[in-house]
Amino acid sequence: MVYFLQVLYAVWSRELKRSLRESGQLMGAFSRPLLWVLVFGVGLSPFFRTGLRETSFLVPFTYVQFIFPAVAVLNIMYPAVQAAVSLIYDREFGFFREVLASPAARPAVFLGKLLGGASLALLQGLLVLLLAPFVDVPMPWGVFLACFFPMLLIALAFTALGLIIASRIQSFEGFGVFANTLILPVYFLASSIFPLDPSLTVEQQQQIFPPWLVFLVRINPLTYAIDVLRGASIGFQQFDPLTGWLVLGLSTLGLVGWAYYEFNRR
């Protein structure tokens, strides 16, 4: 048991050391949320309560407040998937052999890798919460803790997803293409930057938005994850909170299980 934890610690701390020494990644962690909050958030705020919004539902918050939790999620997604790059790197440059040839238990190595990636992702997500006072999102300890857990689950889920992709893909180039074609659509189709109006029925939504869009947003698990976080941070949820937690919990569990399977297969 002690040995198991030592292996886990070794792999976990290695992930952290490697990433924290990479200045490029850290730059991204700071600049990405700033860009989103400042440019999108501030820039689009004036349009948020005009046009079709007046006729349907009066939202009790600004656009910056609305996208704030989604920006935190974005800052989790990028580094989480980056964890996969580290796995491909290990494989390509031989370090993986050192680990696989050791007597260390596979589950410990896997957990170290997963938690390492997830810790980094979570840290960068929490970084975004530092911006809370500037976008009028009060963040007392209670709210912070309420945000922490959904963010942790999201970090685990996306790190697991990254590890799955890395196990399936052979090269760095392939990974870049795959990650971009997967991440951005999933993110944009998660009601991250626009709300599906909660006061409307599905039929009504489909009159405002094209039906395919409503459909894609509603089947996207990330929609519910962001929704839960939005509930925790600004007290606004478009969907039933229980459904949200269920979808978030089950997707995380499923992805982690799948990642473990993929990891053990090789």
């Binding site: 290695r14 050391k17 490697r18 990479e22 440059f93 031989g94 370090f95 993986f96 052999r97 040839a101």
Partner: peptide
């Protein structure tokens, strides 16, 4: 103890 044919160190550490 193993020494592999290909390098297997972590270059960043």
């Amino acid at each position: 103890g193993l020494v592999f044919q290909e390098p297997s160190l972590d270059e960043r550490l």
